[in-house]
């Protein structure tokens, strides 16, 4: 299992504003180091552009968005450019991606990117819940776009049976029947849904991060999204397997491994004990 799978509780807790003390401390330390590095980079840029020139063409920002802009300018500007217009060859423009996209990418730790790869990996998030919302607010006010509804529990009204049907049509081909994820072409992959929170799943459907198709509100109504989230959270994650240990829900490949590693090995040992060895 990758590290992201051991931390769902910690992640959920952070999003609900109940941080685990140790990891937050460590995160702050990391953030400070990265902050210094980014400041050094950004400082160079600042000296080139007159500080007064940029203030005039921006619409007035709300308080939260202004905080978000400050965060953006130290952590994101390197790749996404000033005013989030994107940098050729480094990062795309964020105009119009909406708060949903920011929330998904930042709260799951995928952004800021550690290094360029086929696909961003889930990591412990760099920003707190509050900071994520500020960043999201900033991007939202820059160019609009989809927004995740308020609240941490987005599946209260969801129907698992309806959600299951939608999940199998729309999600299981990539994320697999058990939500464990699967491979895509050339090193890309559909991530496991196990560590994902309601808001992250909702945001992913709305924004179509990376290679995931977009499932806008016209295609999957908000109540259908709630159904899908309910199926993922209630049935796939919370429901205990009735048949014993689930072997990782990888399908027949781990079952085949188990029959040799457990069944055949146990019985060969038994026959070694029963019969002669010479």
């Amino acid at each position: 299992m990758t590290s992201e799978n051991d931390r769902p509780r910690g992640l959920l807790a952070r999003l609900r504003g109940r941080p685990a003390a140790r990891s937050r401390g460590r995160r702050r330390l990391g953030a400070a180091v990265r902050l210094l590095a980014a400041l050094a980079l950004a400082g160079g840029a600042y000296t080139l552009f007159a500080p007064g020139a940029q203030a005039q063409d921006s619409a007035p920002l709300s308080g939260a968005a202004a905080e978000g802009k400050a965060l953006f300018d130290v952590s994101c500007v390197t790749c996404h450019g000033r005013n989030a217009q994107g940098v050729e060859g480094r990062g795309p423009s964020l105009i119009g991606v909406g708060a949903a996209s920011v929330e998904f990418q930042v709260s799951s730790g995928r952004m800021p990117l550690a290094r360029q790869e086929a696909q961003a990996h889930r990591k412990p998030p760099l920003f707190t819940d509050e900071q994520t919302r500020q960043l999201a607010q900033y991007i939202q006010e820059l160019g609009g776009g989809p927004v995740v509804p308020e609240g941490d529990n987005l599946h209260e009204e969801g129907n698992v049976a309806a959600g299951g049907e939608l999940f199998r049509i729309n999600c299981s081909q990539c994320h697999a029947f058990g939500g464990g994820g699967g491979a895509l072409s050339s090193g890309k992959f559909a991530p496991s849904l196990r560590p994902a929170s309601d808001r992250q799943i909702y945001a992913a459907m709305l924004s179509g991060p990376q290679n995931m198709p977009v499932f806008g509100d016209n295609q999957l109504r908000p109540d259908q999204k709630a159904d899908i989230i309910a199926y993922i959270q209630e049935t796939l994650k919370h429901d205990q397997d009735p048949g014993g240990f689930n072997l990782g829900r990888y399908g027949p490949s781990t079952e085949g491994l188990a029959i040799f590693l457990v069944g055949i090995v146990a019985l060969v040992f038994a026959s070694l004990w029963i019969a002669g060895k010479s």
Partner: peptide
């Protein structure tokens, strides 16, 4: 059902035998 649509690369992957 070849239905693993990658919206950035516009590839469609079949999960059974990995045709793209």
């Amino acid at each position: 059902p070849a239905s693993l649509y990658e919206q950035q690369t516009n590839r469609l992957l079949c999960p059974c035998h990995q045709s793209q």
